[in-house]
Nucleic acid binder design. Structure first.
Length: 217
DNA sequence: GCCCAGGTGGGTA
DNA sequence: TACCCACATGGG
């Protein structure tokens, strides 16, 4: 275990101690987790909940029902989450992929990790972050989700250097935390919570659980 | 009224 | 490769 791994692991443990388990992903079953992952793109969770509620109420929160919906109908349900035309198209494609997979949705989610990730990325509107969110929170496979908060975190703690690319930041966390889906998922959730409380655009405040006495440049 | 939110994809240099 | 911008709603 090198210096970087030690610091990442220590940060994870400090955050878990400070905030407690986050219980992510919020969602009723794997399909709803997948839907939420798409809807939350560049969108606050409050708006996502609104859209999820509409999809549930319309009886469309399963692959078969969603795949049957017209694009226009799905757009109306997704509207509160913003970028609704794009997201409706992605959700439609995603539901059809789940429906047509061998073994349906459970079959899709039990595929080998790299194949699942690749197939998700092939769907327009699903990028690395959304794909990885589905891999870890819906399929329960060990991958770390790199988002704006995680990037900000590694930069603030001087772990950044040339750790710019998505896969490099991801490998850093996975190397430090190991191949434990629960742990990797929990770590991402904790970083989001940290970011919401302490790591906004302005410098961190004094009561940060991580004690920002590290170089912040 | 302005900025941001648990990004992605297309375009341009 | 590296930026820039549209997407679009709702909350602070």
């Amino acid at each position: 275990m090198n210096e970087r791994d030690s610091r990442l692991l220590a940060a994870y443990e400090a955050l878990l101690e400070a905030f407690g388990p986050q219980g992510w992903w919020p969602g009723d079953g794997p399909f709803e987790v997948m839907v939420g992952a798409v809807l939350t793109q560049n969108t606050s969770w409050r708006n996502v909940e609104h859209a999820i509620g509409r999809i549930r109420a319309a009886g469309a929160m399963d692959p078969a029902s969603m795949a049957e919906m017209t694009l226009g109908g799905l757009e109306e349900l997704a509207r509160p989450s913003g970028s609704f035309r794009r997201k409706a198209r992605t959700l439609s494609l995603l539901s059809k992929a789940a429906l047509s997979a061998r073994g349906g949705l459970p079959g899709l989610l039990s595929r080998p990790q790299d194949e699942l990730r690749r197939d998700l990325l092939a769907i327009p509107g699903i990028g690395p972050e959304t794909a990885d969110s589905i891999v870890v929170y819906a399929a329960g496979l060990p991958v770390f989700v790199v988002d704006a908060y995680a990037r900000r975190f590694v930069e603030r703690h001087g772990i950044a250097s040339p750790l710019d690319r998505y896969e490099e930041v991801q490998a850093a966390f996975e190397g430090a935390l190991g191949s434990d889906a629960d742990k990797l998922g929990e770590c991402h959730a904790l970083l989001v919570e940290l970011g919401k409380r302490h790591c906004g655009p302005s410098p961190c405040c004094g009561d940060c659980p991580l004690r920002y006495d590290l170089p912040t440049s």
